[in-house]
Design a binder for these strands. Sequence first.
RNA 1: GGAGAGGUGGCUGAGUGGUCGAAAGCGGCGGUCUUGAAAACCGUUGAACCUCGCGGUUCCCAGGGUUCGAAUCCCUGCCUCUCCGCCA
Length: 424
Amino acid sequence: MLDPSLLKNDIDNTAEALVSRGYNLDVDAFKALEGRRKEQQTLTESLQAMRNARSKEIGRAKAEGEDIQPLLEEVAGLSDKIKQAEAALNQILVELEDLQSAIPNLPHESVPLGKSEDDNLEIRRWGESKPNPFKPKDHVDLGQKLGLIDFDLGAKLTGSRFVVMKGAVAQLHRALIQFMLDLHTDDHGYTEVNVPYLVNSESLYGTGQLPKFEIDLFAVNSDPQYYLIPTAEVPVTNFVRNTIVDESDLPLQMVAHTPCFRSEAGSYGKDTRGMIRQHQFEKVELVQIVKPENSYDALERLTGHAEKVLQLLELPYRVVVLCTGDMGFGAAKTYDIEVWLPGQERYREISSCSNLEAFQARRMAARWRNPESGKPELVHTLNGSALAVGRTLVAVVENYQQEDGTITIPDVLRKYMGNKKIIK
RNA sequence: GGAGAGGUGGCUGAGUGGUCGAAAGCGGCGGUCUUGAAAACCGUUGAACCUCGCGGUUCCCAGGGUUCGAAUCCCUGCCUCUCCGCCA
């Protein structure tokens, strides 16, 4: 949600800034609706004020033993009028809310202009893909040859875009999770949290998935309706929904490992091969709740925390800053980290680190008390994958493959795998 | 699943249907005192929205209802706690 005062007082500039990310705000419709709101609110509140004053008078008159009948007659019908006015106002407020909750965040000034991922800007690379003396296989072939990654079984149990990992690959998957959690808690100062995988619609509204992106979610047939989380960002960021955080508790830095569930509506035929795009995958997610003045420093650090995982795994990667047209709905600025996949001979997204500024905080009413103003003010929220576990596993398998199809286990993971050195 | 109790400001906790946005205490902030601190004392201290301002509106878990008027009465839902049953 954008600052409503931007829409009320500076809507033309705001609309222009939104165009850069491909969103066309209907300025005239908004202005008209906002005008109606103002008018109806003034009317409603003056009727309410009248009722309050008269009711007080009646109370006083009754206490003094006066005849209140004339006063009662005077307010007859007022109550109905107020109800009508309130209903009309609520109708307008709902329309305004619908409109406002569908508007994406404004991009930060440092974000490059662009229309699609082709306009994203690479800002650094780390590591080099080892020149292979043999033609590298992709993780599907490798996994099948080892008999440890079974897509057919996943499809039998559930359907397409599900997978079963077995034996040492399942163990590698678990080792990656533990390695990442230990790194972020021990070295980067995050608090590990374990959270629900089902959330309510309020939480999804708070982080921006609802109401606009319901189609991307899996819903559970429950009453009230619950949804499977598409990312740990949802439950963890919502820790601070409707709360005023103590200044001394900021920044909040939390790390969670969860499964993530995505319907992948609209990506039919995309990445159908392999584990890159699954309906269910696991992720280690970083979330920070910070003072506004610190949020861009925090974004750099958070991105660095995600990069550190790849560095320790010695996986080559690059960092790109997303252009205005390619950013997610709530993001003001996003860095994607892309890992080198020899099987595809290209970099693929393995992490996305975003500063949402006050966009989610406003939807969530997540605030802190600023001692300078003495007032509650909105916090800034950030999140980033560190990392997507399934894709990291793919990267390890493909980058550490040997000519005979076996996989060397990265040094930092061996202690989590009984000091095993190789998967064969 | 059965029986009961309860949800009020940062926290604890009062609140006969009518100056209640709400007593009191704690905490926070400011001050007096003190070499400094503590203690004591005095004052102050919820949020959102409308308005240049005066001021106004809304909010006592949520949503409905009764009433001229609801924190207070009624209905529904959600959540918490206690006891019983079941259960990983």
